[in-house]
Design a protein around this nucleic acid. Structure first.
Length: 499
RNA sequence: GGGCCGUUAGCUCAAUCGGUAGAGCAACUGACUCUUAAUCAGUAGGUUACAGGUUCGAUUCCUGUACGGCUCACCA
């Protein structure tokens, strides 16, 4: 049978129970984690023992080197790993033969012993007592190569985390970075808030939604594509600085940089504009990089990226002019459209703003180092305030790193009449078949009519930021449980149910 | 959704031109009281993803399906 090792273990577990041994005991009193042992007894010299100290440590057995009447094995916990020495003379014949028979690689064990340093210089625990803490049923992947099958890596992340140190390290980086981001925002007097995930009017972004059903009210709801309009309602209500770190859901194609559910941080700051948000963005991201690595430089997929602020700021039109050797402002719409057609681009919407956006798409991948692309056309920025001095443009920026959009921000539109007109423009686009155009949100307009102070808003794609921090090639590598097609596990369950 | 590629033992990988499917690790039995991917001797483990087809004979060639990867389109 393909599950023969599993069958053996299940049988062994039954035998242990018959002998009165609990293969899943309830507790183990741990005095030392592995890193604490290594740190506390680092001073021991080779062959020096410290019988006066007793340590209780526990972890998963990840290697056993058996020498007959003695053995070395290695246990691993969240903090690291440590070698353990066990000999028949040290624990007695009965305990030693239990160890040899019933403690396998993969099992959890608790050890009581004292520290010493081996002949070859490795700090080791000399076992006085050993206890089986959890019997493992399935064998672990091979210790040397780990697990390489992408399907297992994404579908059974727990196996990936057990077997692949780099993967564990990557998620430690993710959750450490999230902690640092929250600390930064809290230090700047931002309040962490929560807004609806289930919404009946989509807003805050342009994307196709997931639809779900609420039985009690007998209505369809959308999983949110962005929290933006609710966060701004909090500013209307009197909150001064708010942020939310949470999931957005977009029913779009999946790729190495797109996941159907992804984590976004959005924040809003009263009395701030998009220039303040640029300062916030570069301070936040650069300080996280600095705190984690001790330097502003990091290497992503072999390319060095420098997060040291300040970052270059360049108007979108200037960037297009620079890289396409053209002059957008002195070109007519027809000339811009011709240029795009020559490049094989056929934009669906041909207003000036969408033409400029299509040109931008041609040059976006020219960006490697962090750059703020600023002052976007009004047609593609329905929630951003008109530019204070440049007609047809808004006070908006996108942060681009390595050709990827990392953040999007603007001086928030707080004029209710203007906002209503923008929504109406979006509704027209929607009616003419643009599925990604935004919906009219009359309650949001009503909120603005009660008055929102001048406000700067910002959204940062957290997963993409973590990709840089952990040198991950795919967004799936930084999401612990990325969405994968359903697996036929129920078949296995049914088979067992009949046994 | 389109195109290209992949799926062999629990894990990592072999298998010539279409000719009995192998190795290392893990498992099991045995030897070994300071090892570092411990070592040594032996045993067992396979519907070659699934369903068809071609053939005397298919892991190998063909078709379809499932799952995955890359890529294009859409999006952040």
């Amino acid at each position: 049978m393909s599950d023969s090792i599993r069958e053996q273990r299940l049988q062994e577990i039954a035998e242990l129970r018959a002998q009165g041994v609990n293969p899943y005991p309830h507790e183990f009193e741990r005095t030392h984690t592995t890193d604490k042992i290594l740190e506390t007894f680092a001073y021991l010299q080779p062959e020096q023992t410290l019988e006066s100290e007793t340590v209780h440590c526990a972890g998963r057995v990840i290697a056993i080197r058996d020498h007959g009447k003695s053995a070395f094995f290695v246990i691993s916990d969240y903090y690291g790993k440590i070698q353990v020495y066990i000999r028949q003379a040290g624990v007695g014949e009965e305990a030693y033969s239990f160890f040899k028979k019933h403690i396998n690689v993969g099992d959890y064990a608790g050890i009581v012993g004292f520290p010493f340093r081996s002949k070859t210089g490795e700090l080791t625990i000399y076992t006085q007592q050993i206890q089986l803490l959890t019997k493992t049923v399935r064998p672990l992947p091979e210790k040397w190569h780990g697990i390489k099958d992408k399907e297992v890596i994404y579908r059974q992340r727990y196996v990936d985390l057990i077997a692949n140190d780099e993967s564990m390290k990557r998620f430690k980086v993710r959750f450490e970075a999230l902690k640092l981001i929250r600390e930064f925002m809290n230090n700047r007097q931002f309040v962490e808030v929560e807004t609806p995930m289930l919404q009946y009017i989509l807003g805050g972004a342009s994307a196709r939604p997931f639809v779900t059903r609420m039985n009690a009210y007998d209505i369809d709801l959308y999983l949110r594509i962005a929290p933006e309009l609710y966060l701004k309602r909090l500013i209307v209500g009197g909150f001064d600085r708010v942020y939310e770190i949470n999931r957005n859901f977009r029913n779009e194609g999946v790729s190495y940089k797109h996941s159907p559910e992804f984590t976004m941080m959005e924040c809003y700051q009263a009395y701030a504009d998009y220039e303040d948000m640029m300062e916030l963005t570069e301070s936040l991201m650069s300080s996280v990089v600095k705190k984690m690595f001790g330097t502003y430089l990091l290497t992503y997929q072999g390319v060095e990226i420098n997060f040291e602020p300040p970052w270059e700021r360049i108007p979108m039109i200037d960037f297009i002019n620079r890289h396409l050797q053209m002059d957008v402002d002195s070109s007519s719409d027809a000339q811009l459209l011709d240029y795009l057609k020559q490049r094989g681009q056929e934009p669906e919407l041909t207003d000036r703003g969408h033409l400029i956006e299509a040109l931008w798409d041609l040059v976006e991948d020219k960006v490697v180092q962090p750059v703020f692309i600023i002052d976007h056309p009004i047609e593609i920025s329905p929630l951003a305030k008109k530019h204070r001095s440049k007609a047809g443009l808004t006070e908006r920026f996108e942060l681009i790193i390595y050709g990827r959009e990392m953040a999007n921000a603007f001086s928030e539109l707080n004029d209710p009449v203007d906002q209503r007109e923008r929504f109406e423009g979006q509704v027209k686009l929607r009616e003419s078949g643009d599925e990604e155009a935004q919906m009219m949100d009359m309650d949001f307009v009503r909120a603005l009519e009660y008055g929102m102070p001048p406000t700067g808003g910002l959204g940062i794609g957290i997963d993409r930021f973590i990709m840089f921090l952990s040198d991950a090639p795919s967004i799936r590598d930084v999401i612990a449980f990325p969405l994968v097609r359903p697996e036929m596990v129920y078949q296995e369950y049914d088979e067992e149910g009949e046994e």
